[in-house]
Design a protein around this nucleic acid. Structure first.
Lengths: 225, 225
DNA sequence: CGTATCATTGAGCTTAGTCAAAAAGTGTGG
DNA sequence: CCACACTTTTTGACTAAGCTCAATGATACG
């Protein structure tokens, strides 16, 4: 757990699943370098956030500081596992933090699944705003450069930049410098989906409403081999 | 936990984070319906696989059977949580299964991050082959239709179909019926990255080799608020 | 005050989405 | 076993969107 400044590597390895990370202050990016040289940012970590790489076949994985004075706690996963086995309170904490990581991953999957670059950038802005200011604030200072946004959203830098200027010109956001963003129209940034909700639902129609509690409580089914 | 046939809904709700799922036999898809009507498949579940939705702002979430005689155990998350708190063995099992879910999510993020449709489809084929036959087999029966693949990879059906025929024509795969695939050239299906590994690494160069064990073992840093 | 990095903008090209239709499977009942 | 309907898959033509290459501004840092 060392303090690092912007751009400095916190930890890196090609055995990524040996360590897990928790940001204590600052911000960090977790990325994988594909053998082609492409970098994909798997997660952005703000204070309190937890992350662990899954084994990923020989790719180089790393965690870098995004801000000055970033402090990240790095732990060998097997140590954490052992502590969790020994102490139920720690186990519960680990579960809770892993749940947060899962939520961010699912959110990223959803964002990456969007069709247009504008939607991706828009929902990224909404997500990062939500995370930095817990309430429904409308101002955010991006912790990332355009390059990082591009590698996070799987877009080119140019497309990220163009999307932002387009959103600005539409009046959906306002920019004060490259990193200071004000959200003007949330709906235009991906909740826009909501507005079209009365449109035709083709191959995704929910067939029946939820049928009440399945009533199955035999946790052995969940837990046994 | 009821047995369902292909296409039937197993569970659905717009409070997705209340339940978690474990496939006992068959196969299932976990998806989110965006208000626009678009469906995104968040995960494909094979026997033994575990999944839980994160809260996702009012979208409809569902789990459907992909095969006949699919059996899925559905549990309220708070019940599982309570059992994990009470029984360390269950807690460990839940951790282990959640780790598997995390690995699949990270893999999906990586696949969605690929640039071309052919790469997405190719790495999807590799991934699903790896999961269905634990060793390095080269044959796979896809559990999904083209539509499902499309909704999983965030592509259009037509593009999925075109990518598959293109891979076939290149000799990277062989098709026997729409769902029976034989992997001919693994490298062409996404490990292709490996071949270009000596190419220029631009903005993703790992700065230093891993610096040895950070040596931090104070798990309080991991566990405390 | 240069220099390097980051951000923006432009032009051309490649690729995937859309709309439309045909072909190939799948399952049913006669 | 065949005929029929229905679904799934494939293919084509066109359009739109993002990537690449290239150049220009802006900003921070020595």
């Amino acid at each position: 757990m060392t303090q690092r400044n912007r751009g400095e590597e916190i930890h890196g390895s090609d055995r990524p699943d040996d360590y897990c990370y928790r940001v204590l202050s600052g911000a960090a990016r977790c990325y994988i370098v594909l053998p082609s040289g492409r970098r994909h940012i798997m997660d952005l970590l703000l204070p309190g956030d937890f992350f662990a790489f899954a084994p990923c076949g020989g790719h180089y994985c790393g965690v870098d500081a995004l801000a000055d004075n970033t402090v990240v706690a790095c732990f060998p996963c097997d140590v954490v596992k052992a502590c969790a086995s020994a102490d139920p309170a720690i186990a519960a904490r680990v579960r809770e933090m892993a749940l947060g990581a899962t939520a961010r991953m699912q959110q990223l999957i959803l964002i990456l699944g969007r069709t247009t670059a504008r939607e991706k950038v828009g929902s990224f802005l909404l997500a990062i705003t939500e995370r930095t200011s817990s309430s429904g604030a409308d101002r955010v200072v991006l912790p990332t450069s355009r390059y990082d946004i591009a590698d996070y959203l799987a877009l080119s830098v140019e497309t990220v930049s163009r999307s932002l200027t387009e959103l600005k010109q539409r009046g959906s956001i306002a920019l004060a410098g490259p990193r200071r963003v004000r959200i003007v129209d949330r709906h235009e940034l991906g909740e826009r989906d909501q507005l079209e909700s009365d449109c035709l639902v083709s191959r995704a129609t929910p067939r029946h409403p939820p049928e009440g509690d399945p009533g199955e409580r035999d946790v052995r089914l969940m837990a046994n081999q």
